[in-house]
Structure formats: structure tokens, C-alpha cells
């Protein structure tokens, strides 16, 4: 229990950092902290395979992707944004109230934890077998639908990037675009042609 509390506190602090830190790279690093702590939590639950996947896929691959995008886009703080007065504080208040309500209901109304012996039996010592059973048994349809979802994402991404590149090559129809827009087109075209310049 004590381990869990420590891990939970680190995780929540990390999550708050993602939202509150001003620099995008700091926020991304804060997210790494949360993801790694989550992996450790999986280890304490004896879900070793899941922990390894968590580190490799999320803390590894996906975070690298995040950082790549951040560096490519060169995100900067563009100064204060126009918004309704008080909106910021209303948003903070709403977030705090919602979070408190969820936490209160979860503590007050939680289901009793199942017997640890049953859980360990299901987890099969944290090997890949249990996950395989779930993926190709109970969640077979969901597993295949994720494939369709990824296909949709890839086709959609290609459609958006490809279109830009095509129109940039072809005769410019609508003129009067700001110069920055053309530079962005050039970047998109470079990406579409695999970085060849």
C-alpha cells in the first residue's frame, strides 16, 4: 500500500506537470515520468510483460515521436491569448471540483479489491500468455478493429500531407497566401518525399 501511495503521488505530480509546465519539452519530460511510474506500478502488480511493453512502447517509441514533433514544429509560446475574462480561473475551478468529485466517489463507493490469489492466477506470473489469451480470445474483435483504426489513421494522414504536396507542385491556383504558409508547404512536401530535398 505504501509503495502504491508513493507511486501514485509521483504519477499525479507528473501529470500535473504535463498540464502546467510552460515549455512543451518540459511537459513531455514530465509525461515520461508519469509513464515510467505507471510501468513500475505494473511491476508491483506482477504484470511484468505489460510493464516492459509500457516502457518500450510508451516511454520509448511514443515519447520519441512526441519530442520529434515538438522539435520539428518548433512550438513557441505566442504570448497571451485572447479569451473571455475569467475563463482561465473558471476552467481551473471546474477541473478541481470535477477531480475532487471523482476522487470522493471512487473512495466512497469503490468495489472491494478481489482476492490477490485469484489475481496472481490470472496474471500467470506476468508473462505474455495471459495477455495473448485476452487479446485473441475475449478481445478478438477489438484487436482486429484496432487494425482498421490504424489503417484509417494512416490513410487520413497520407491524404492530408499528400494533398498539400500535390498542390505545391502543381500550378498555384489561389494566390495571396502568406509567406509562412508556403514555407509550411515546403516542409510538408519534404516530409512527404521522405526527407529528400
Amino acid at each position: 500500500m505504501a509503495t502504491f501511495v508513493v507511486l501514485a503521488v509521483v504519477m499525479v505530480v507528473g501529470a500535473l506537470g504535463v498540464v502546467l509546465l510552460k515549455q512543451p519539452v518540459h511537459a513531455a519530460l514530465s509525461l515520461v515520468g508519469t509513464l515510467l511510474t505507471l510501468a513500475v506500478t505494473y511491476v508491483t502488480l506482477e504484470a511484468h510483460f505489460l510493464a516492459a511493453v509500457q516502457v518500450i512502447v510508451y516511454a520509448g517509441a511514443i515519447m520519441v515521436l512526441f519530442l520529434f514533433v515538438l522539435m520539428l514544429l518548433n512550438v513557441q509560446d505566442t504570448g497571451p491569448r485572447r479569451s473571455l475574462p475569467g475563463l482561465r480561473w473558471a476552467a481551473y475551478a471546474a477541473a478541481v471540483v470535477t477531480a475532487t468529485a471523482i476522487a470522493a466517489v471512487a473512495f466512497w463507493d469503490g468495489r472491494p479489491a478481489p482476492d490477490p490469489a485469484v489475481v496472481s492466477l490470472h496474471l500467470q506470473g506476468g508473462s505474455a500468455g495471459g495477455i495473448g489469451d485476452a487479446l485473441f480470445g475475449e478481445l478478438l474483435l477489438a484487436f482486429h478493429l484496432v487494425g482498421v483504426l490504424l489503417l484509417t489513421g494512416v490513410v487520413g494522414a497520407v491524404a492530408l500531407v499528400q494533398r498539400r504536396a500535390e498542390s505545391a507542385h502543381g500550378a498555384p491556383k489561389g494566390t495571396g497566401l502568406p509567406a509562412g504558409r508556403d514555407a509550411a508547404d515546403g516542409k510538408a512536401r519534404a516530409l512527404a518525399s521522405g526527407g529528400r530535398r
Binding site: A101, I102, V105, A106, W108, D109, G110, R111
Partner: peptide
């Protein structure tokens, strides 16, 4: 027992 959680 978890009717509140289900409502949420």
C-alpha cells in the same frame, strides 16, 4: 454497492 461510481 458501487452505484455512485457507475453513475459517474
Amino acid at each position: 454497492a458501487a452505484r455512485g461510481l457507475l453513475l459517474l
